[in-house]
Design a protein around this nucleic acid. Structure first.
Lengths: 191, 191
DNA sequence: ACCTGAACACCGTTCAAGT
DNA sequence: ACCTGAACACCGTTCAAGT
């Protein structure tokens, strides 16, 4: 028979990982403290010991997790390519966890997520872009919205859980729109 | 003493109106069938009679409500201005109901919301835009994302419910980004 | 036809208690 | 230090019953 105690002790990381898995496979509405405990082989109440803020803190942590990305700008020729890299990384991180997209778009960026935005602004400024904060805001808008529309199109949130149907044109549509946006930004935002 | 029966009989419209009010003022998490019934002076179970699908149908209806917009293209000189009008209308409709933004971005467009998208594509095609469906998709992405970022910035979802703080630069940022996007779309999408 | 009351299975969270 | 069990107030939804 299996041991009663969990093989690995609980940790913030394991909790977040398990929560993401539930949200992505069953939907955010089914992410429940009790179900999360079950997935971790633990009573639900044990979670509070590692995540003092309760469920609200858990949701904040999930949002932060999927909006924290980083880009190495070395080797990228200009601000245009740096911006492109950040947008692609942001899109990938969001697409990887469709279950928590609504949290990522709703919760204000905190901690590592806010730091990532600051780093992006800095890189673009260093690369000679004028008003980098405004540009980053516009790019973030586009990334969030693109992923939302892409997931809408795949019917991810539908009643009969479709077999994922990855929508092959999603990436192409994203790149087309991104190029259009960068072309437009060039017009007034060059240094 | 007040009458036990509600003064006005329940209706789908009244239910949606009351639900939007709760979501906008108290947050989506507090929108509950029981609280909704209380706001309508009715037992929660009465709602099911007018909204057969239960809470899931209610949330669908809310998403549809805030994503159904219309634009009269007559008098607008070109596709650029038609697109601008649709984007402004979409932004206003979403900003008016911050509580259900996450639903609007998540639920696939249905019914009147899907019809509005079709109408937008038709208008842009008539105005001479090439590949209007791709353009509308990109514009929708930008509108969704802009509103999400704007509401993040205002701290709408924060713990201590701020006094709305309408972020005066939100509209300016939206218009700047929109102009950039339209400029970029012009490049490859003219007829 | 429209609404209510009671009931059921399920939530998040607390708190004292176990080890 | 870390986890459990019981308890409380609250969910969504059903179903028979009232008017």
């Amino acid at each position: 028979m299996p041991a009663k105690r969990p093989p690995i002790p609980l940790s913030r990381e394991r909790i977040i990982e398990a929560a993401l898995d539930i949200a992505d496979t069953q939907g955010l509405r089914r992410l429940t403290m009790r179900r999360l405990g079950e997935a971790l082989q633990v009573e639900a109440m044990a979670i509070y010991h590692h995540l003092p803020g309760g469920k609200e803190a858990l949701l904040d942590a999930l949002a932060q997790h999927v909006t924290t990305v980083s880009v190495d700008p070395s080797g990228l020729p200009d601000w245009r390519e740096i911006a492109r890299a950040w947008c692609r990384a942001g899109r990938q991180a969001l697409l990887a966890h469709p279950g928590v997209l609504s949290l990522a778009m709703t919760k204000p960026p905190r901690g590592s997520a806010a730091a990532a935005i600051g780093e992006q602004v800095r890189q673009l400024a260093d690369a000679g872009l004028r008003e980098p904060a405004a540009a980053v805001r516009t790019l973030r808008s586009y990334v969030f919205g693109s992923v939302a529309v892409e997931l809408q199109q795949t019917g991810w949130a539908d009643p009969k859980a479709q077999p994922v149907m990855p929508e092959p044109d999603g990436e192409a549509a994203f790149e087309r729109g991104l190029t259009a946006l960068l072309t437009g930004l060039e017009r007034f935002a060059e240094t």
